[in-house]
């Protein structure tokens, strides 16, 4: 059986093409174009390194390119490449920079620094501050129950009954409401931080990184501090994650 040999140049192109198609169409949900561009750039970078690390391989890689431009018999191909390649780049550039109806991609800051007054706060329903007695276990369960009631009266419309950010109104917001089951949301945060975010909502976000996209209401207008702590107990309990603590 004849061994099928493909030159390093063409195999690199195939690798690049297949990787692109896989990332673009197979990975679900689709990758944002910024990430796709970054990964394709990395693959190109890796191909460059692999090819140029050895002299012979580099020569082999360049052979088809040299062959194309130095072979007098390939005038038609040379013309096609010389016109087609810059044209393709031009089309890409035109598409990339032409104004679109949809808003451009944005660089969101998701974790701004909290104001001083919230730093180091402990949930008084879970554990009391320095010198205080720890709340009773039975009380904690009661607070979680109350937190659940508050959650379903106020929060679940956006954050969902499964605490996954897929509430009835979720689709109306950009960005989507936080998914508490995601390890990257409340599991990464201390309760004091969550308390600040609930209490002051979107308008309470700091001046840095403005303008903010947050539809979170100012809950201190509707809930007491104790109710906010109760709802915090519930969302951690319900999402099955632990609040972040410092050693």
């Amino acid at each position: 059986m004849r061994k099928f040999n493909i030159s390093i140049f063409w195999s690199s192109l195939v690798l690049l093409g297949v990787s692109y198609l896989l990332m673009k169409y197979v990975v679900q949900p689709p990758l944002p174009s910024s990430i796709l561009a970054m990964y394709v750039g990395m693959i190109l970078f890796a191909i460059f390194i692999y090819v140029t690390v050895e002299e012979e391989r580099m020569r082999e890689f360049l052979q088809p390119i040299r062959g194309l431009f130095l072979d007098e018999k390939k005038k038609t191909w040379q013309t096609l490449v010389l016109i087609g390649f810059p044209l393709a780049i031009g089309v890409y550039s035109f598409n990339a920079f032409s104004p679109k109806i949809s808003p451009p991609a944005e660089l969101r800051t998701v974790h701004p620094a909290p104001p001083d007054e919230y730093v180091g706060l402990v949930n008084p329903l879970r554990e009391s501050g320095e010198g205080g007695a720890k709340p009773h276990e039975g009380d904690l369960e009661e607070h979680v129950q109350k937190g659940a009631e508050i959650y379903f009266k106020n929060c679940f419309f956006c954050h969902g009954d499964a605490l996954d950010g897929k509430g009835h109104f979720a689709e109306g917001f950009t960005p989507l409401p936080a998914n508490f089951r995601d390890q990257g949301t409340i599991a990464q945060l201390q309760e004091s931080y969550v308390f600040w975010r609930i209490k002051t909502g979107g308008p309470g976000l700091p001046t840095e990184s403005q303008p903010w996209n947050s539809a979170m209401p100012i809950w201190e207008d509707f809930l007491t501090d104790e109710e906010i702590w109760q709802v915090i107990l519930y969302i951690y309990e319900g999402a099955g994650v632990e609040p972040r603590t410092w050693e």
């Binding site: 990975v27 949900p29 689709p30 990758l31 944002p32 174009s33 910024s34 990430i35 949809s102 808003p103 451009p104 991609a105 944005e106 660089l107 969101r108 800051t109 998701v110 996954d164 950010g165 950009t174 960005p175 989507l176 409401p177 936080a178 998914n179 995601d182 390890q183 990257g184 949301t185």
Partner: peptide
């Protein structure tokens, strides 16, 4: 990155705060 640079359309397709794989 943990928070992705995504357009509105792309964020909608992801359908969550974080991409399930990239997150």
């Amino acid at each position: 990155p943990h928070s992705l640079v995504a357009s509105l359309e792309e964020a909608r397709k992801i359908g969550a705060t974080h991409h399930p794989l990239l997150g």
